[in-house]
């Protein structure tokens, strides 16, 4: 009988729930943290742009370091598969035109994410 009282007491339930939650979250993170990042680049008129370079830079509190570059395919889509961070900025460049820096915040490092909002190129002001 004493064991039942302890099991139901607050001091057991709250830590148990916390540990369960952490464990479940860890499993979810492992399944979704391959660093995949996909998105698309369009020009001012909205047409996909092929061959544009997309720069991925990791944004730290103090510094900002460029980590990877890739080019868009024929359909204007680009794909990174080694995103190391949880706070990154994407910028597309094609000749003189460039898109504004888009900040993307993820829930954990390397979270797989498809960027729905395309990077829109604008003539370099």
């Amino acid at each position: 009988m004493r064991w039942r009282r302890i099991l139901l007491s607050r001091f057991f339930i709250v830590p148990a729930v916390l540990l369960l939650g952490t464990g479940a979250w860890n499993v979810y993170v492992d399944l979704h943290a391959h660093g995949l990042l996909e998105g698309s680049v369009i020009d001012a008129a909205g047409k996909p742009v092929a061959g544009a370079t997309v720069i991925l830079s990791v944004h730290d509190f103090v510094t900002q370091v460029e980590k990877a570059r890739t080019r868009t395919d024929a359909a204007g889509r680009f794909r990174f598969d080694d995103n190391p961070s949880h706070l990154i900025q994407l910028q597309a460049q094609d000749g003189t035109e460039a898109s504004p820096r888009v900040t993307i915040r993820l829930w954990f490092r390397g979270q797989d994410r498809v960027v729905t909002e395309p990077l829109r190129l604008a003539p370099n002001a």
């Binding site: 952490t22 464990g23 979250w25 860890n26």
Partner: peptide
Amino acid sequence: MKRRTFLA
């Protein structure tokens, strides 16, 4: 720092 260090 893998998250599991807390449990380990």
